[in-house]
Every structure is written in C-alpha cells, then in structure tokens.
Amino acid sequence: MTKKLTEKYNDACVKLFEFIKMLYDGDVEFKKVINHFSDGEYNGKSNTHVTLNKYLNAMKIFGIKVKKINHKYRMLSSLYKLKFSIDDLKSIKLLKESEDILPEGKGKINFQNFIRALEIRFDESAQSICQVENSTQNLDLEFSNAEITNQLKYCAKLCQDKQKLEIIFTNTKGEEINLLCSPLEQIYEKRKLCLKVLGSKGTRIYNIPTDSIKSIKQLPVSSSTQAIPTTVVYRIKNRLAKNYKIREWERVDKIEYDGSQVIVNKNEDLNLLLERLMRYGTQCSIISPKFLKEEMIEKINKTLENYQ
C-alpha cells in the first residue's frame, strides 16, 4: 500500500526535519542549508537567514546542538538520543581506538560512520561522561589504548604497502633475530599487538609482538602472493582429546577408536604452536610435517640436556 501524502502538511516542519536528516548524514554546507530553506531561491537579500536562525534557535532550545564550523553545520547532539551506560561507552571507545586495524578504504569509512552515528545519538549523560574524559587526561577509565594507536597505524600501512620487510626483533631469550618476510595482518596474541608475517620461504608464519621489534626496513620488492603456510597435523589423546576446543584455524581430521583425535592446523605461528603442543606433554604428538616433528624432538632433547 502506498503512503497517502496528499493530506495537509506544514512546510516549515518538513523543512526543519529534512535539515535534521541532512545533519545526521554529516556536515552540511551553509549554502546548501540556505538553499534548502529558501527553496533554492536565496539571493542574498531575502530574510531566509533570519528564518534559518529561528529554526536553529528552536533546535538549540529543544536540546539539539548544532555548530557552524568552516561554513558547515555539524550536529553535535541529536534529536533522537540513545541511552548508553559507562560500560557501553568503554566498548565504543575500545572499538574506536581499534579502527586503525582496518586498512584505508571503504571498510574503514563505514566503520567511522558507525562510530559517528553512535556519538551523535549519545544522551546527555553519555555526552557529559565523554566531555569529562576528553578534558581530563588523568582520568583512568581503564580503556586507554592510545599508546598503541601509532603502532597500529604503522603496521596497517606495512600490510597495505605489500612490500617485503626486513625485521629485527628480540625473542624471549633476548636474542636479536633478523627476518626477511612478507607482512600479512596485525593481530592480538596474549593481549599483545603482533605483526603477523610470512617467512621468506613462504611457509612459516611468525606473530611478532610489536614491542619486541627493534627495526623494520621496507625492501623494494613486492610481497610474495603465492605463499602457502605450513599445514601441521598432530594427534591428541586421553583427557586432552576429551577437553580440546578446536581453534578457528583448525579442523578434526579423524577420531580414532580409542578416542584420540587427529587435528589439522593451518596458519598458526609455528614457534607458538610448538610452545602450545609442548604444554600438552605426552598427550600430544606431531604427525607432520617432518621438519616440525624433528623440531619438537630437538626441543625436548635440548630441554633434557639442561639436566645432564
């Protein structure tokens, strides 16, 4: 059924609400606003600007904050408000501070528009909390991630540039490692920001914590696009098999008659995977690839050497 719009309406009301609609979509040029209220007939002499001021005052007295910045109107607080708790505001701030994880482009713009759509709908209480937070540097709301923002931006750029990198970083032992690699993405591992890279042979993934990176050099060579990270197959048994929670990047290949399971793992940092599988003790063994199985045996042997 089509809407019946032939009834008598008030043009001033419609104009005002249409102006508010424009403000919801973003900043609006003064020229566009004045044209809107004068039906495109503003000649600089009519009193449309007086009318506009009356509408702006009506909005202001009602509680809609609109500010003119560089010949553009910007809505700071809207007609229709949503209630947000302090926990909601922390979540919004956490998301906002993580937007740099997205590469520049449509995806990021969409995300920024979502945050703006929320911010202009903040109710009075949410607005005052944010104002306090913005004006008080020392206010600890336990969600400040600002210090890693620069690291995030830099890593995002590296991943976007798609050039090979020479990274010098320190391992847990404190030794400096020099690695030629291709950047993949930025991820969080054990609550630390890591740059996920693919080793120069194109088979080994490394998650390098950004705080352990000493230097990064972009090489004038494009990242390899045909790299295939190593697939690891391992067996888990007994209590571990009963309790094991499959990771997003894993699948169960087989469940044996004794309850043991064969797991196929792709895309995990092999050093971190070895650490994890070591934890499982005798309840886990690597089946393939051969080189990783040998690395595991070497790791066990070297640990045993500590006691000889």
């Binding site: 008030n10 005002l16 509408y55 009506a58 007295i61 009602f62």
Partner: peptide
C-alpha cells in the same frame, strides 16, 4: 520558530 519547536 514556534512551529518548528512544537513539531520537535
């Protein structure tokens, strides 16, 4: 604008 205000 009273009309605008009433509408709001």
């Amino acid at each position: 604008s009273f009309t605008g205000y009433k509408a709001l």
